[in-house]
Design a protein around this nucleic acid. Sequence first.
DNA 1: CTCAGTGTTCAGTG
DNA 2: TCACTGAACACTGA
Length: 263
Amino acid sequence: MPELPEVETWRRLAEREATGRIIRGVQVAEDRIVMDETPPDDLGRLLPGRTILGTGRRGKHMWLEFDAPGHLYLHFGMSGSLTAHEPGEGPSHAKLALELDNGKWLTYRNPRRIGKVRYYENALTSKPIAALGPDPLAEPLSPDEIAKAFAGKKRPVKSALLDQRLFAGVGNWIADEVLYQANLSPHRACGDLSRQEIQTLLRTLHRILAKAVAVSADDAHFPKTWLFHTRWGKQAEKTGRGEIIRFETIGGRTCAWVPERQS
DNA sequence: CTCAGTGTTCAGTG
DNA sequence: TCACTGAACACTGA
């Protein structure tokens, strides 16, 4: 379930392991998610010899920058991940593996194959990233902007939180976690939120993202009070505080929330 | 065997 | 034009 914190953690991994390194070799899987408009031979031909100079991320999308124009764009979909490893120790379902000049490898894997790897001249102006709103971790969202976007809107706030044009990087569990910690019902219409509630929403969002990134998106280290730990599985579970969790479909996605607490 | 879940895009409806 | 819904994508695992 890669959302913003996981992708930021992988970006930092790439930053740490790969910047300053020269790509010696490339292994590309015969798979649509690494091909489509970019035939696999292109990545195999374009990348070797390049030096990785930096990394970038916006929402759930990340990319590598080189000593020449062009970016390697990575999207993880629902089951992708990035790992650094020694030769011969690569993960299963590898789709793209980069051999670095220190002998280590950086490998993108994606067992469920919903995701995307592409070579773009400029990732920032590519179709997927150009469509995104601001990244709520990189630049805390302005209450003015959100209030303007919410004004007059009847859509439930849960659905708005998943809108990547407004909150790039927020996924299903983070949206539920934010509403739980901000004591807001997922059904509330955006246009009905008070100024104060919008402030609380944005502060809570930023706090959750910052905490998740601070523990490298390792859920074992999320605070015990988070809804995250008890939200999985459709049985009528209770939170760590003993509150009843309700499961409903809102905006086409399963929403976990606590009616006695969120209004 | 069935079906939910995970993120994004696209077709369809109102 | 906008707002929203639902399907499709591929696969795992309950």
